[in-house]
């Protein structure tokens, strides 16, 4: 009690410092939660992939389900030798994984992670509830290519460089249709705030209202995540391991892990924009967390779908990827935009 009163007193005396401390604590909690969930995601992917391919996936480390597999991987990666190749651009090389992870974490701040019902009122769980959060997330998503490009450029390796080139070309081609899709959603929801966008889907999901936009956004999202039909940046058989060819130890671990964090956050974005976020019928007994249950069910379905796509499609060639982006998806996304405006005006 004494501690609590001391804290309130301190908050009243120094509101700015108090806000800063609270913000830092929230950020630390968020970052650690995201890391743990992303770790579970890697494990989930290996298990689901195993199920789809008549294998088991990890099942020896940490009990029957192999839950501790990722713990073992992390310990190993942390204690691996750290090699900086001769001829590498040292500072860029060192900073690249950090930039990659940091830019990814920036997205997490603006995304609502579900909601809880308190006194019959929905309280979204979001760190920074900004008015333009959809635009912000979209902008930061395109920043991610910088980390990968830094890694590829600084490694002094031709395969890394090729991977980096491919990543940037792909990002430029797909950010535009993706952005147009986000704007279409915003037009329908009359807001750029992700919480408002979710609230606007109380009656009808945007995936139903604009199916074209949903498909385009999905494809562009997979591209942004660098998942299977679009994983040209690290095509093992063509350019060894793409931009992280020269990375070893925990630096590689960060780059590897970042992909899964992005996959998690990207799926959350898809759920929020098109699949009605945490909206769903209230479950009677546990009404307090029923939005959370809906949210995580949708998220799980999206994640498994992403894994499923990964194991069942061959890889595009890089020129075909950019062709698809500029020549097909961009015009279609504009069509979707017109449709969204028309429908939005009709119902408004």
């Amino acid at each position: 009690m004494e501690l609590l009163s001391a804290i309130t007193e301190f908050a009243a005396r120094e509101p700015k410092i108090y806000g800063l401390i609270i913000g830092l604590v929230a950020a630390a909690i968020l970052a650690s939660v995201i890391n743990v969930v992303a770790m579970l995601l890697v494990w989930l992917e290996r298990k689901v992939m195993g199920d789809l391919q008549a294998r088991y996936g990890p099942n020896r480390v940490g009990g029957r389900w192999g839950v501790l597999q990722l713990g073992a991987d992390a310990i190993k990666l942390f204690t691996k030798e750290d090699i900086i190749p001769r001829g590498a651009d040292k500072s860029v090389y060192v900073w690249a994984p950090i930039v990659a992870v940091a830019t990814t974490m920036l997205i997490a701040g603006a995304l609502p992670f579900g909601a809880v019902i308190i006194d019959g009122r929905e309280v979204p769980l979001v760190v920074a509830n900004m008015d333009i959060s959809a635009l912000y997330v979209e902008a930061v998503l395109s920043l991610m290519a910088i980390g990968a490009f830094m890694a590829g450029y600084s490694s002094n390796n031709k395969y890394s460089m090729l991977g980096a080139f491919r990543g940037v070309a792909r990002m430029i081609a797909y950010e535009v249709p993706m952005g147009v899709c986000v704007i279409s959603v915003a037009v329908m929801a009359h807001s750029l705030n992700l919480v408002e966008i979710v609230n606007a889907q109380q009656n009808i999901w945007f995936a139903v209202a604009q199916p074209l936009g949903f498909v385009i956004f999905g494809i562009a999202l997979i591209t942004d995540l660098g998942r299977m039909p679009f994983d040209q940046t690290e095509a093992e058989e063509e350019i060894i391991a793409g931009y992280n060819t020269e990375y070893s130890g925990i630096r590689f671990g960060l780059l590897y892990f970042q992909e899964y964090i992005v996959m998690l956050l990207g799926s959350i974005l898809l759920v929020l924009l098109f699949l009605g976020g945490w909206k769903g019928p209230v479950i009677p007994v546990i009404s307090f967390i029923s939005p959370m249950i809906w949210f995580f069910m949708k998220l799980l379905i999206v994640l498994v779908a992403l894994i499923w796509i990964r194991v069942s499609l061959p890889r595009f060639r890089i020129d075909q990827v950019t062709d698809l982006g500029w020549k097909i998806l961009l015009p279609l996304s504009l069509v979707n935009f017109v449709w969204a405006v028309a429908v939005g005006l009709y119902f408004a």
Binding site: G50, G66, K76, K80
Partner: peptide, 22 residues
Amino acid sequence: GCPHYDCDRFGIFPRATPRQVD
């Protein structure tokens, strides 16, 4: 590394670049 034998059970899997293998 394929079904029937599945090295992933033991946490063993192949990587293409020597920098990331044990």
